Simulated scan of single mutants.
Amino acid sequence: MKKFLGLIGMLLLVVTLGACSKTNSSTNTKESSQATTSKVSGVNKDTLAVVIPSADHGWLAGVAYYAQKECKALGLKSYKVITSDNVNDQASQIDELISQKVGAVVLEPHTSELSVAARKIVKAKIPLIIFDRKVKADYNGFVAGSNTDIGKTTADFLGDKLQGKGTIATLSVPSSGSVSSERLAGFKAEMKAKYPDIKLVSMTADSFTQEAGLKTAKDMLTANKHVDAIFSIDDESSLGILQAINEAKRTDVKYLSGVGGSQSYFKKIKNNKSDITLFTATYSPTMIQEAIKEAKQVMDGKSVKKENIIPTTIVTKDNVNKFLNAKSPY
């Protein structure tokens, strides 16, 4: 009898522990769905999965931040912001999301190599919104800015300010691929069409860092005794270029652009007291919010635009306050 009662006690203990384990697991899943993670666990048919590259650049850190912000703002009960360091890891994450039948995916692919993985999502009949970089798949919607429009809009701003005359230095970052080439192509095409008397000189950097901007600007300023403006194709590069101008004590440079949506550069624009007009053209990480809104709409059975290209906005001292966000990492 004692042995029988002992056996019953042990069984009750196992059942109790099992129930506690299940409860804790559920709690942890709910908590982890609110944090940026590289893991795919804890998702289901009601989960909106945001799949993005890891933050190796300030802009991508901003994407992760605004993704979290929008998911919370929409009141999503289950969501996951999932990061990866490379193409293979991202493809594996997508396979896991498909096997767990998530409700929708917002995907910023590392490269176009993710087209195969994206087509798997579509084949599984999971709603797919592509963000920033295109893939070859029949996605529900694509959300991005326009690099070509950034070049065109900046060219119009500078061409008008310089009244169609002067010298502009243009930054190129070949390692960034189409980002650099498209922004420059849009800029040069508009200059040629509308402001043919403006002379363009080139400067080339190996990355979009402040240090690279500083180095290439020093070389360019040494080689050119007079430059009226600089078309920098990235905000972080612009910070380095501005440092080079100040260190060289150049007074000829009257305009310095940026591109992106960097809070550091926004602050420079706001607090600028020099004779240089600082401005930037938006290609903001906040665009991920629009992609997440579209994913939620598709999950709710609504249709969205196949192509949603966010217009470029020129940010100057006059409107910069609208773009400042002290909590943003970029």
Rank of each mutant, 00 (worst) to 15 (best):
A291G: 00
D156S: 14
S112E: 15
D228K: 08
Y66I: 02
L5V: 15
G58S: 06
Y195N: 07
T313D: 10
D56G: 06
G261E: 07
S25Y: 13
D275F: 01
E96D: 15
V43H: 07
V135Q: 01
Y139Q: 14
G58R: 03
G42H: 10
C71K: 02
L239Q: 13
T154D: 07
V51F: 12
Y139F: 15
A205S: 14
T251H: 14
A118I: 03
Q297Y: 07
S32D: 12
T222P: 00
T111D: 08
S176H: 03
W59D: 01
F208T: 09
K215W: 03
N147L: 11
L17P: 05
S181K: 13
Y195R: 04
I310K: 09
Q210L: 11
S274M: 09
T316R: 09
G177S: 05
F231V: 02
E211N: 13
V51N: 11
V173P: 05
G261H: 06
T209F: 05
S38W: 05
T277C: 00
D85Y: 08
S284F: 09
S257N: 03
D300I: 01
S232K: 04
P174C: 09
N308G: 00
D89H: 04
I230D: 06
N224A: 04
S115T: 05
G301N: 04
D156H: 12
F187R: 04
A223D: 08
D206I: 09
K225I: 11
E113F: 03
H226F: 07
D228T: 09
G75M: 12
T47E: 11
E96G: 00
T148S: 12
I98L: 07
F208W: 10
D197H: 07
V179Y: 14
E236L: 09
I245M: 05
L48R: 04
V135F: 02
Y66T: 01
K302T: 10
K268S: 12
C20I: 13
A295C: 01
E247Q: 15
S180I: 02
N28D: 13
R250H: 08
G62A: 10
T47Q: 11
Y255H: 08
P174D: 11
F323A: 00
I82N: 09
A155S: 10
G42Q: 11
V106A: 07
A35W: 12
Q263V: 05
I310T: 13
Q297W: 00
G9C: 15
V40M: 15
Q68I: 05
K267I: 10
L200Q: 10
S264T: 09
D300C: 02
V40N: 14
S21V: 09
N325W: 01
L76C: 09
L278H: 01
I276D: 08
S202L: 06
Y283C: 10
S238H: 06
L11H: 04
K120C: 01
T83V: 14
